[in-house]
Amino acid sequence: MTIVKHELKQGLVSFAIWTASITLLMMVCVFLFPEIKGEMDTMGDIFASMGSFTAAFGMDRLNFGTLVGFYAIECGNVIGLGGAFFASLIGISSLSKEEKGRTAEFLLTHPVSRTHIISEKLISVLLQIIVMNVVILAFSLGSMAAIGEAIPWKEVLLLHLAYFLLQVELASICFGFSAFLRRGSIGVGLGIAAMMYFLNLIANMTESMEFLKFITPFGYCDGADIVDSGKLDMTLIAIGILFTFAGIFTAFSKYRRKDIQ
């Protein structure tokens, strides 16, 4: 576990900043809720009349006046985007940073197999995502308790689980790309995350584009669907898990045979 330890140490500052930022934004959102709830009578009409944007964010089906509805939309966007960017970032740089920083020559001339190195790097990526989600969940739940609302346990846990799976999927896909890249990796990572996010918005807005939900992991993170049905869409998640394993498999098969510069 030498490399896991090393990776976590190397990524600590970035991890701390991302986790703190997302947690803080989530808390701010939750603390805004009591005020929003009071003004909901007037705001409801506005939100309902924004045309396709209303649909894009699922506001046509969720009630902004309830904590669960508000949380699914506002906080869903914060953890959805923030988490996706962070996961893509650590996934895409995990392998490629060794060649970019020209440290590959150092690391790979130690008696450690490439399989071993890839495994430990993957573990460290997953560990960071797990810890980040635990921290965010804990502070979100704490904030809900602090504003004196009853916590909608089931919906909140399902939402967080979905976003956790989304982050793992994006990180794994990026991890796969990471094995091929030497430079410009961060742009690729952020690009993948942003593209997936917008694909979901398009799928929500246009019925003919609904098939996009099968591609983007944001498809199974839709707050309105989860709150409505009280469960996760297992078909979409199964597809997501396939993408996850494809990314990991690609990383191993490419990086094990790669010529290192």
């Binding site: 090393h6 190397q10 920083g101 020209r102 440290t103 020559e105 150092f106 001339t109 130690h110 008696p111």
Partner: peptide, 16 residues
């Protein structure tokens, strides 16, 4: 097994 017995000094030493 080979790398365990080898010490390598690269021409351009860069670290983390």
């Amino acid at each position: 097994k080979i790398l365990a017995l080898v010490g390598y000094l690269p021409s351009e030493a860069l670290f983390y």
